[in-house]
Amino acid sequence: MEAATLRRRVQILSESGLSQLPPEYIQPPDLRPSPPAFSGGIPVVDLDPSGDPLPEIRRSCLDWGAFYVANHGVPLRLLEEIKAAGLAFFQSPMDSKLRFACDPNSAASEGYGSRMLSKEDGVLDWRDYFDHHTLPESRRNPGRWPDFIPNYRDVVVEYSNKMKELAQNLLNMISKSLNLPPSYIEEAVGEVHQNITISYYSPCPQPDLALGLQAHSDMGAITLLIQDEVGGLEVLKDGEWVAVQPLSDAIVVILADQAEIISNGEYRSAQHRAIVNANHARLSVATFYDPPKTRKISPALQLVNKQRPLKYHEVLYGDYVSSWYSKGPEGKRNIDALLIEEKSS
């Protein structure tokens, strides 16, 4: 492993005892974190079968684009096991971790890395990660995942399968909340491509200058996320950042850009970011539920009318992914590029 590649590991920088942030991690003044204006957190939707979650799901998708789900059907011990497996990996010796390093020349390769985007001139996130390609099963190769942590591979497979079930259930309910057939969004997405990314945010010497993950909306259909008790996830609502307080028994649901397109803009994908702190490492696990790159995504025609005209151009998902990785997310500029200009009357 080249020394330059090794230096890009945030955990190595953090553990070296540096007192000042390297310049490539310093965010521009207007993007630096500040105390959230509101810390009440995102809505919590109870999926208990005895109730009707659809009204709360609709409200949450309209107002936030993000919400917690409780009584989600995923075993709580599995949520703890996937976090423990990830923490064990990042606490392992560097030579063991580097055996599973990402391809440094590919922006979206599987494995252990730090740099997500392909452009070289952007500010870097204060984060290391391990990305797993988990669905469809033809992409799933546990041989590319750590073999030195007991049960790691089995836990990732079980977690992948449970997250698929939950994502399908949620997409069905989101479809119904839009008065679409229950399977509409799932069929529009096609054969799901699922990635599971475990992120590790090391203590940062100047957390007021850096971000663990820059502000962005996710590119796919839906994201399911859990975080440890340290917290650090923030969601943008009405121009203000809201801290998402950790709930150990709940899962964060984040609407992504393709869901916004399918809803013809009725629901908004959630812009979110991760902040860091000086004293504690933080760990999160994000499960991305995305279309295949060959899939074309367009608004549901049932949601197009005089009151809500067609809002987005159709897009080939592979082109959308290429734009996201090459230009960088920068909030929601990638989905905004698909907006159809309104004709003046």
Rank of each mutant, 00 (worst) to 15 (best):
L247I: 14
K97R: 11
Y25Q: 09
I297E: 02
G17L: 10
A70S: 15
A286F: 12
R7K: 15
E341Y: 07
I251N: 08
D319V: 11
D128P: 08
W324V: 12
L98H: 06
G190T: 04
Y200V: 00
Y320M: 10
Q194T: 10
A167L: 07
P146T: 06
L338V: 11
P292R: 07
M1W: 11
Q214K: 11
D121I: 02
S269T: 02
G73D: 06
L117H: 08
C204A: 08
S269D: 03
P55W: 01
V321C: 09
P28S: 00
A70L: 13
F67N: 01
S160R: 04
P22W: 08
S19E: 15
S39E: 15
V252M: 02
L98P: 03
V123N: 04
V276L: 09
K97F: 05
L78E: 06
L225C: 03
E260I: 02
S34N: 07
A256R: 07
F100Y: 15
G239A: 12
I185G: 10
N279Q: 14
S60V: 10
P329H: 09
L225D: 04
I149R: 00
D336C: 12
K164L: 14
V156F: 03
D336T: 07
R139L: 01
V235P: 13
A286T: 11
C102I: 12
T294S: 13
M219N: 07
S177V: 10
N305R: 12
Q307S: 12
E240D: 14
